[in-house]
Design a protein around this nucleic acid. Structure first.
Lengths: 141, 141
DNA sequence: TATTGTTATACTCTATAACTATA
DNA sequence: TATAGTTATAGAGTATAACAATA
């Protein structure tokens, strides 16, 4: 039930993002950089729970779009520090709005109280699925 | 929110099914045959919202496992009618139990009233995502 | 030797377009 | 000609294992 409905909702979000030429994975990367502190690709990949080799392509696109910058670490020349630039922050805000629209479409027919209740319940579910027994989950979207 | 939590929940279900050597798609096929009436592969594929060519492989596995039978249509020799056999019905019950376990794990920390409320709210969401504007969705899991 | 980012390789999954046998 | 099931083909996406540069 929650699995199939949830999967359908995630597909709806994926489709909402498609016209922007992005995938939920890119959204996850941008969110991972939201804090503002520059991170190495290793750190970011670990935080997202994806292989570093998979992050490369995602970042390539975001850099090409002018949303993210790679710059050399001053202390370790192997490392590339990645950070959100202003345009990327603006795009992230934009995508958050897109996510909100998708969510409103999906929760149509729920009154304000219902929506708040759904958010509360999903928050608890989120804590459960985030802390799965085997720890580091490899597949994230 | 609902998209990311829902996606995580669907991944959890996928992982719960993996030890049984099946994918949520196979579960969907079995559920599509639950009614008992034999269907052509075309009908079934249309009902599931997947290309008929994609159904072939899914059915091949289920037939090989002895869960489903293909038999020739008496009225049209091009058609193969597909139906659930007893072992398939038993396995479907089993998988429904697996889904229930996965759901309980994911909703740990919710009391009975919360769970009922979540089911109610997701039921409404389900109706929304099932009836998307563009009609026939091509991707179903 | 170990680690960082990257690239190469091999594998899986998919839709689309043939193909065959029937209608 | 059209349709049912199947198979072939080509493309996308992925993890794993190399790889070059640096520590």
């Amino acid at each position: 039930m929650i699995a199939s409905v949830g999967h359908a909702a995630s597909l709806a979000f994926e489709e909402a993002l498609a016209p922007h030429g992005l995938h939920p994975r890119h959204f996850a990367v941008l969110k991972g950089l939201r804090g503002g502190e520059a991170q190495s690709q290793q750190q970011l990949a670990a935080a997202l729970g994806i292989p570093a080799s998979r992050l490369v392509g995602l970042l390539d696109l975001l850099v090409e779009r002018g949303l993210v910058e790679r710059h050399d670490s001053p202390t370790d020349r192997r490392v590339k520090l990645v950070r959100l630039v202003d345009a990327g922050r603006a795009e992230l805000e934009n995508l958050i709005a897109v996510a909100g629209q998708s969510e409103r479409r999906v929760t149509a027919g729920l009154n304000a109280q219902d929506k708040a209740e759904l958010r509360r319940l999903l928050g608890i579910v989120h804590a459960n699925v985030a802390a799965e027994p085997d720890g580091a989950r490899t597949r994230v979207w």
